[in-house]
Simulated scan of single mutants.
Amino acid sequence: MENCNPVSTPAECGLKLSKDDKGEKVNSTEFRSLVRSLIYLTCTRLDILYADGLVSRYMVAPTMSHWNAAKRILRYIKGDVDDRKSTTGFVFFVGDTTFTWSSKKQPIVTLSTCEADKHIDTRYHFLRECVEQKEVMLKYVKTEDQIADILMKPLMQDVFVKMRTPLGVMKN
Rank of each mutant, 00 (worst) to 15 (best):
P62M: 10
F160H: 13
Y50C: 13
R75G: 00
L167T: 13
V81Y: 07
G53M: 14
R32A: 07
C130L: 15
T98G: 07
M163D: 12
I108Y: 12
E132L: 14
P166W: 03
D96A: 06
E132I: 04
M64F: 06
S8V: 04
M64I: 09
V55I: 10
K118R: 13
K105E: 00
K16G: 02
N172V: 15
M163P: 12
D47R: 04
M163S: 10
Y76F: 01
K22H: 09
V131H: 04
L46T: 09
S102W: 05
D117M: 14
K153T: 05
V26K: 09
G14K: 01
V169C: 13
L41C: 11
E115F: 13
E135Q: 12
W101N: 11
M156K: 13
I147M: 11
R164T: 14
L151C: 06
Y58I: 04
I150K: 06
N172P: 15
L46D: 04
S56P: 03
L17P: 04
L17F: 00
K142P: 14
V159C: 15
D80R: 08
M163Q: 14
G79D: 00
P154A: 07
Q157N: 14
V169Q: 07
V109N: 05
F160Q: 15
L54D: 01
M1C: 06
V159T: 15
R75F: 02
D80F: 10
K153P: 05
M59C: 00
D145N: 09
D117I: 12
W67V: 00
W67C: 03
A69L: 00
Q146Y: 10
F31H: 04
Y140K: 13
G53R: 13
G89F: 08
D52S: 15
L41A: 11
T88D: 09
T100R: 09
L38M: 01
V136H: 07
D47F: 03
A11K: 03
R123C: 05
K105H: 04
M64Y: 00
G53S: 09
T44R: 12
S112T: 13
I77T: 01
K71W: 03
L155E: 01
K104T: 03
I39N: 06
V91N: 03
R123M: 09
L17A: 02
I48V: 14
V161M: 06
K22Y: 08
R72H: 02
L34S: 03
K162W: 00
T29A: 07
A148D: 13
F90R: 05
P107Q: 05
A148C: 10
A11P: 01
V159H: 15
K105F: 03
R75H: 02
V169N: 10
F92Q: 09
V60F: 05
V7G: 00
R45F: 07
K25I: 06
V26S: 08
Y50M: 11
K134R: 15
T97E: 11
R128L: 14
T165W: 08
L46F: 01
E129V: 06
D121C: 09
T100N: 11
I120L: 11
V109G: 05
P6K: 03
T110K: 14
I108D: 11
K16P: 02
M163T: 12
T87Y: 06
P10R: 03
I77H: 00
D121T: 10
M1V: 08
S112H: 08
A51Y: 02
V131Y: 02
D80M: 10
K19E: 08
N172L: 15
V141D: 10
V141S: 13
L151R: 10
G23F: 13
K19S: 15
D83H: 12
S33Q: 05
S37A: 07
M137E: 14
